[in-house]
């Protein structure tokens, strides 16, 4: 697989704050990435930097082997769908699709209009008259039908109901299977997308916290449930990310892979072990106070 994005020590500072600090990562061709993190973590800033819509303070960005700024060879191969995308006030849905057809070289018109039907979008309605969910649907349609070799979805489904969201996942996977490309998905609904993600990049406080294959992440932490005293004796000496007690039961989330010794110990103590979900892991890693975060990430 070839690398299509190479970000090296990327920094974006505003007057009083570093929105992105020393972030380095690479993206490979034809994979689905999840860029995760809390609100204000710096994900959207990174995506804007990748597409040269804002300018970095430091560091280097290479997309398809070249700098993206004012570079049509790079920019015409990226489609970046963001929640805050602005549309001309006079535009109807149809206008947006027709303009997109002229801007994205691999645009599939038929696919776009079939998606319009799937999402039940009124083609003639003005963008300003659309509901929040419909506005999101327009972005999703543009993102899918563009078939851009690098497609970025930043919080693409604000206001979309569960049916429309699963429609999005289905169409995305179907089309991805037929037309492989690199997809970056940024979302808060981690549980919903976790089965699609092949690789996870976790950003917190402008810094890179995790950059790992989704499979490996599964083994990064586990939970143990049982009676409080037994759980506590099991957890002694281990790195505990979170602890929850209810009645006599305690659940702890332990960082690190569960070794065979750990399994035996849990078994003898009569404790239940389960892998932690991606969402839980992200919540644990990014949920603490700012000082704690870095320590946890080690």
């Amino acid at each position: 697989m070839s690398t299509i994005v190479k970000v090296d020590r990327l920094t974006k500072s505003y007057k009083d704050i570093d929105a992105v600090k020393d972030v380095s990562f690479t993206l490979e061709e034809n994979k689905i990435y999840g860029m995760l993190g809390r609100n204000g973590a710096g994900k959207t800033t990174i995506m804007h930097l990748l597409t040269a819509q804002i300018f970095p303070t430091g560091g280097d960005i290479q997309v398809f082997g070249e700098a993206p700024y004012e570079n049509d060879r790079v920019l015409s191969r990226i489609c970046f769908i963001k929640e805050s995308q602005k549309y001309p006030t006079t535009f109807a849905v149809r206008d947006v699709l027709e303009v997109a057809a002229g801007l994205f070289p691999k645009w599939d018109r038929e696919f776009a209009y079939s998606l319009v039907e799937d999402f039940r979008l009124p083609l003639k309605r003005k963008m300003t008259k659309l509901s929040r969910g419909m506005l999101s649907a327009v972005g999703i349609i543009v993102g899918l039908a563009s078939r851009a070799p690098l497609t970025i979805f930043d919080e693409p489904y604000l206001g979309l109901d569960a049916v429309a969201r699963s429609l999005f996942y289905d169409r995305l996977l179907e089309d991805y299977a037929e037309h492989p490309r690199t997809i970056v998905l940024s979302t808060h609904l981690i549980d919903e997308v976790s089965r699609m993600l092949e690789h996870v990049i976790l950003i917190d406080g402008g810094k890179l916290l995790l950059d790992e294959e989704a499979e490996q992440l599964q083994g990064r932490a586990y939970t143990v449930v049982g009676s409080s005293s037994k759980v506590e004796s099991f957890a002694a000496g281990k790195r505990v990310l979170a602890r929850e007690s209810m009645g006599g039961l305690t659940t702890v989330t332990v960082m690190g892979g569960a070794g065979s010794d750990d399994r035996k110990q849990a078994l003898t103590l009569g404790l239940e072990m389960a892998p932690v979900t991606l969402q839980q892991l992200v919540v644990h890693l990014t949920g603490g106070k700012p000082e704690h975060k870095e320590a946890k990430a080690q």
Partner: peptide, 16 residues
């Protein structure tokens, strides 16, 4: 104001 943010959002070069 009407069209620049839209165009840039759709990855149009400032030059184009």
């Amino acid at each position: 104001t009407h069209t620049f943010p839209f165009a840039i959002g759709f990855n149009v070069r400032r030059k184009d």
